[in-house]
Each structure stands twice: as C-alpha cells, then as structure tokens.
C-alpha cells in the first residue's frame, strides 16, 4: 500500500494502511457540497456537510429519499466527485484512498458476478490487487467462514437466497482487509426477519474486525440498533441536521431491541427526521430528487 503523505500537516499513515494516528478520523468531510445538472438548471443535492468519523465507529446516515445520503456515501468512496469542500479518508484525499484500496463497498443489490462461483466472487478484489493464488484461497475461505457460507463456496450466486448473496458481498468487501466499510442500504431489499438477522451478523463482524463502518439506511430501528452515532439528514438540499449518539450497551442483541432506551432513541431519531423535514419543506423548490436519478435509479 502506498503511504501517500498529504502535502500539509504531515499526518502519518502506516504501511499496512489499516490504521493512522489513533486520534486521526477515518473520514473527514469539510464543507462538502454536491450540485447536479447543467449550468442553467443546477440541483443542489448536498450542501455544507461537516462530519468526522473516528476509527472503529459505526455511523449510520439516515434521511428521507432524495436527501443525498447515497450520494454522500459515494463521495466518501470517490465514486463521484464533490463540487465543494474536501473529502478525506485516512487523512488523504478520497481519490488517493480509493487507489490505496482503503475501503470496501457493499451496495443495495449484491452485485455478484453471475459467471463466478461464490468463492471466486470473494476472490475478485484479491485477483485485481495481484495477491498470489494461495493467499487468495486462504483469504476467501476465511471470509466465507466469517459470514457462515463455507459450504456454499462452489455454488453460483443464483443458487443463493437474497440474504446469502448479500453476505457474499460483505465477505468480498472485507476480503482485502480495508480499514473502512461503506454500506449503501445493504439490507433494503430483504424481508424484516432476514434483515434483523443480518443486522446482528454485521454487528458481530464489526466487533470482531474493529473496522469502521458508514451505513446508509432508511430504517430508523436498523440505524439505532447498529450505530454508535446516527447522522440525520434532511432533503433539498441534503444536510446533516442532527447527530444522535447511541449509547446502548454492547454487545447488542434481542434484549437491546426490547429495552426502553432503544425505543426512546428511535423516537429521538424520528423527531429529528420530522424536524428536518419541516425545515426542508420550506425550500421545496426542486422538481426531482437528484439522489434517485443519480444513485438509486433502477433499484426496485
């Protein structure tokens, strides 16, 4: 991993790329804005986003559709460019971080390659990064064990259920030990039961690996159950209106979902969303939600 040194500040990034200085945030967004569309009809998707995400944190982005939460995630992953402000990952510009393979991405759909077996799908990033065959094999089987799919290694994606496919996608995202995991509504297409089971699995993976997670969702219970902090966003233009600290004890499980504190936090996030919505309704000028056209178009 190339230890790219930022021009100013001289923040050290160690050779494995897994951790920077302990006090350095993994993600730092400063005055980030994103405007879509032509010069004559600009649509402001995101405006003045300031957010720092520390090492080992689990942060959810939640908001109404069209608030730009997926776009924000894509900005962190350098899958799209910010029009204002700066996006830093591990103290480097987002682009550098992407080329250094600092993060793994999980999309709403599993995006598995139909022509590859489960194992070969997990292996894909390792092939691209030029790992040797033996370490690819070892790593792929470790990852499949982590997500509990060892016996499905030789199957093709179409033979798996939706939840299992998404677990393969998580295994693939973690295969090259990135320091950051970006998840874009990964369980949005799953039924409630499967979703709750997947939530517990993600938490257990997070606890075992110590990875930093940024998680986009539109489910309030999901955000509260998983996160250490929930960033509540409003639409038109997309802003972070509040950050709710989730102080539920860990490890979280079934008892968490039944605790009064959990319900109180859900109410708190819901009220934050409503407050943001009322503020946003005042500037209800834009016609189409830019996020839908840019990021979510075509996902059912």
């Amino acid at each position: 991993m190339g230890a790219a040194r930022p021009p100013a500040g001289g923040i050290r990034v160690n050779a494995t790329g897994e951790s920077g200085a302990a006090d350095q945030p993994v993600v730092r967004l400063t005055g980030v804005g994103k405007t879509f569309g032509a010069m004559d009809a600009p649509v402001v998707a995101l405006a003045d986003i300031n957010l720092e995400i520390g090492r080992g944190e689990f942060v959810s982005l939640i908001g109404p559709s069209g608030c730009g939460k997926s776009t924000l995630l894509r900005l962190i992953g350098d899958l799209t460019d910010a029009t204002d402000g700066s996006v830093e990952v591990n103290g480097k510009p987002a682009r550098r971080a992407r080329l250094d393979r600092d993060y793994g991405m999980v999309f709403q759909s599993p995006v598995l390659f139909d022509w590859r077996t489960v194992e070969d799908n997990v292996r894909l990033p390792l092939e691209l990064f030029g790992h040797d065959r033996a370490s690819q094999d070892r790593r792929a089987s470790e990852m499949l064990e982590l997500v509990g799919l060892t016996e499905f290694a030789k199957r093709h994606p179409y033979e798996l259920s939706g939840g299992m496919q998404q677990r393969v996608a998580i295994a693939r995202a973690l295969a090259f030990s990135p320091s950051l995991l970006l998840m874009d509504e990964p369980f949005g297409a799953l039924d409630e039961m499967t979703r709750e089971r997947m939530n517990s699995e993600v938490l257990s993976i997070w606890e075992r690996t110590g990875i930093t997670v940024v998680f986009v969702t539109h489910s309030i219970p999901e955000a509260v159950f998983l996160s250490s902090r929930v960033a509540v966003m409003s639409a038109r233009p997309g802003r972070v209106t509040r950050i709710v600290e989730v102080d539920l004890p860990r490890p979280r499980g079934l008892e968490t979902r039944e605790s009064p504190r959990y319900f109180n936090l859900i109410i708190e996030v819901r009220e934050a969303l409503r407050a943001g919505d009322r503020a946003g309704a005042a500037s209800e000028a834009t016609l189409a939600s830019p996020e839908r056209t840019a990021a979510e178009g075509g996902i059912g």
């Binding site: 992953g77 899958l79 991405m105 999309f107 995006v111 390659f113 894909l124 990033p125 990064f129």
Partner: peptide, 11 residues
Amino acid sequence: SSALELMRSYG
C-alpha cells in the same frame, strides 16, 4: 452500473 462502481472502488 453498480458493478462498474464496484470495479471503480477497487481502482
């Protein structure tokens, strides 16, 4: 397009 984004995320 998500598959393309995935490949892009790998650089």
